[in-house]
Design a protein around this nucleic acid. Structure first.
Lengths: 144, 144
DNA sequence: ATTGACTCTTGATTTAGGTCAAGGGTTTAT
DNA sequence: ATAAACCCTTGACCTAAATCAAGAGTCAAT
């Protein structure tokens, strides 16, 4: 695990699956700390930066916005707000992630049911996918 | 469950949590069938349209693109490509949804661990959230 | 029969998240 | 010592997904 401190941007781009332009964009946006520079001005990355990039890419695939991701990353590196604040924010996050998990799970089940029952649902009725994610939320139900 | 066939756009907007402009936009984009019109030209929606809108909104929250959603919706209403094609596409979808579920689950666990261990991880080491989603994927590992 | 809240269409604008191009230095292998 | 492959910055451009504005018609309640 030699924490190699000598990757250039093209290498981390390849290893992380994030394009060079996008890496520089993330740096501008404050998602990535500005890395060391060579005398030539070339950026130089270590494994930690690579981990961050992979995290960002996957979180994005999961539908988190860059703002969400900024917040998640700050949870990990926060030496400021003390354990307490971090813990609280992490708990809020956890709750929202759990909600997403539940929704996604329902979509999954809807798909599975669709696959299982497909050959035999002559009458239309409600499609299992739609049914999975289409109930009201009660707070939406102001009188018509 | 009187399938009320007389909601105007503002009502479904309120009930679905999707703005009026966005509803019309979805119609243009083909995610929503053009609804009935009154003689005045006003759109008139029923419960089914409301279900679709809720589905769309939630799927979007889960990080699906409108294209993804179009495809998911088409799975539900497809009387064309016969059971076979639908089943196949649904299976592909299911696989991808399962992958997302797994990733999201890992993020969840990372958060939970962060909350549990926060008070006692004096030495930095690797943060559990980052660790949850930052391993390489092997196909990314072309030699540096 | 008028007022205030809705709705219509068309077309322009915005925001997030990148992506590209131009012009010019740097490194490495030969 | 030169070519090929890399990297730099600045600034323009792009796509998806909305959102807004203008000008005009409709509906419900007073």
């Amino acid at each position: 695990m030699a924490t190699l401190h000598h990757m250039r941007i093209g290498t981390v781009a390849r290893k992380s699956g994030v394009s060079i332009d996008t890496i520089r964009y993330y740096e501008r946006e404050g998602l990535l700390l500005p890395p060391q520079r060579r005398p030539s001005g070339y950026r130089e990355y270590d494994e930690e930066a690579l981990d961050r990039l992979r995290f960002i890419r996957r979180a994005k695939d999961l539908g988190f916005s860059l703002d969400d991701i900024r917040e998640l990353l700050s949870l990990s590196g926060d030496r400021e707000h003390g354990v307490k604040g971090v813990k609280q924010r992490a708990q809020q996050r956890l709750q929202r992630v759990d909600e997403r998990l539940a929704q996604l799970q329902r979509m999954r089940n809807g798909l599975e049911e669709l696959i299982a029952n497909c050959p035999g649902h002559g009458a239309l009725g409600k499609c299992p996918i739609l049914r999975a994610l289409s109930e009201p939320e009660s707070d939406e139900e102001a009188k018509a």
